[in-house]
């Protein structure tokens, strides 16, 4: 009985901590202004990034060499994005009301994840350029 109670409370706390942690990682990326280079590569034009671009952006991130220090953040945001996707598929479409607001919030969160992926790609591209310029000099 006590074990079951601890299990339920721990899972609930885990979900809450995980959501806050993922959002804290995403929040840091929102201060990052995307460079022209990353906009050119990804086709992002405005200040918004579509949530549907997330998977493609992560594929590009994986192709681009990085220092590896962003791996944990990428994994956390990827899991958060998948969780949001599952929730979105459970919310029935409605023209207005709480269901509509929930769906729009979930999409906004997923778009924030996509922006994080674009920022991660930008940082990796900058890292690669630095490596290349060091290589050329030596």
């Amino acid at each position: 009985m006590i074990a079951a109670l601890i299990f339920v409370v721990s899972i609930a706390a885990f979900m809450q901590f995980f959501v806050f942690y993922s959002r804290s990682v995403i929040a840091a990326s929102r201060k990052h202004a995307l460079s022209e280079n990353v906009r050119e590569v990804t086709g992002i034009s405005g200040e918004m990034v579509e949530d549907l671009q997330f998977d493609r952006l992560l594929q590009l991130v994986e192709l681009c060499p990085g220092s590896g220090s962003d791996e944990m953040g990428i994994r956390a945001v990827r899991a958060y994005f998948s969780g949001l996707g599952m929730l979105l598929s459970l919310v029935p479409q409605a023209p207005s009301g709480i269901l509509s607001r929930t769906a729009s919030w979930l999409k906004q969160e997923r778009a924030a994840c996509a922006y994080f992926a674009a920022a991660a790609l930008d940082q990796r591209m900058a890292y690669s350029r630095t490596l290349l310029s060091h290589g050329a000099r030596s």
Partner: peptide
Amino acid sequence: QLILALGIYFSATAATFA
């Protein structure tokens, strides 16, 4: 972030043991 990571670790470990 240090606190949130600790929360994730404790909750996941407590849930696993339970």
